[in-house]
Each structure stands twice: as structure tokens, then as C-alpha cells.
């Protein structure tokens, strides 16, 4: 049964995203790691739509729309960070702390 293999691959993909989220220092690379994690979640939706018939396909479409919106706002924030500091390293955003 390939269901278990697919779930393990999706889990691996999500873990790789977590690793990227915790280690990358550039804001754009952080956004890319989040993309990898969102992709893993979408994969699980599609897997369970095929195995067991959960209504996963509409959810994947909504998740895609939300991810695209997140990327647009995230890149605008990266642009603001670059304008203020001339680079996009995340340490520079420490002024955003409360």
C-alpha cells in the first residue's frame, strides 16, 4: 500500500521545511521554506482525497489561494526591509519586536 509511503514523504517534506525555517537567515529563503511546508500539507489533503474519499480537493484550492496571498504580502515586507537596511537578513528586523 502506497498510502503509508506517501504520508511518510509528506512528513519528510514538512520536516525539511521546519529545518529551513529554523536555519535560514535570509527573509526570502524563509518564505521558500514556508512554501515547502504548505506544499506538504496540500499533498496530505490530496492523498486522503484518493484514499478514503475525504473532500480534500476544494481545500487544496483554498490553501493555494491563501499561500499565494501570503507570498505577495511576505515579499512586500521583504522589500520594505531591504529599503530600510539595504539587505534582507532577518536579524535586521529585530526592531519589529514589541
Amino acid at each position: 500500500m502506497t498510502l503509508r509511503a506517501l504520508l511518510l514523504v509528506a512528513t519528510a517534506l514538512f520536516s525539511i521545511g521546519i529545518y529551513g525555517l529554523l536555519t535560514r537567515r535570509q527573509a526570502v529563503a524563509l518564505l521558500l521554506s514556508i512554501e515547502v511546508m504548505a506544499n506538504a500539507a496540500n499533498l496530505v489533503f490530496v492523498v486522503f482525497a484518493r484514499y478514503g474519499g475525504a473532500p480534500g480537493h476544494p481545500l487544496v484550492l483554498f490553501a493555494l489561494a491563501i499561500t499565494v496571498a501570503e507570498v505577495a504580502v511576505g515579499l512586500a515586507l521583504v522589500l520594505v526591509l531591504y529599503r530600510r537596511h539595504g539587505d534582507t537578513l532577518l536579524e535586521l528586523a529585530s526592531e519589529a519586536k514589541g
Binding site: V9, A12, L13, I16, G17, Y19, G20, T23, R24, A29, L32, S33, V36
Partner: peptide, 8 residues
Amino acid sequence: GFPALRVV
């Protein structure tokens, strides 16, 4: 998985 590893 391998391309994702390269991403991070």
C-alpha cells in the same frame, strides 16, 4: 524530498 533538501 531531494529538491526540498536543496531548497533549505
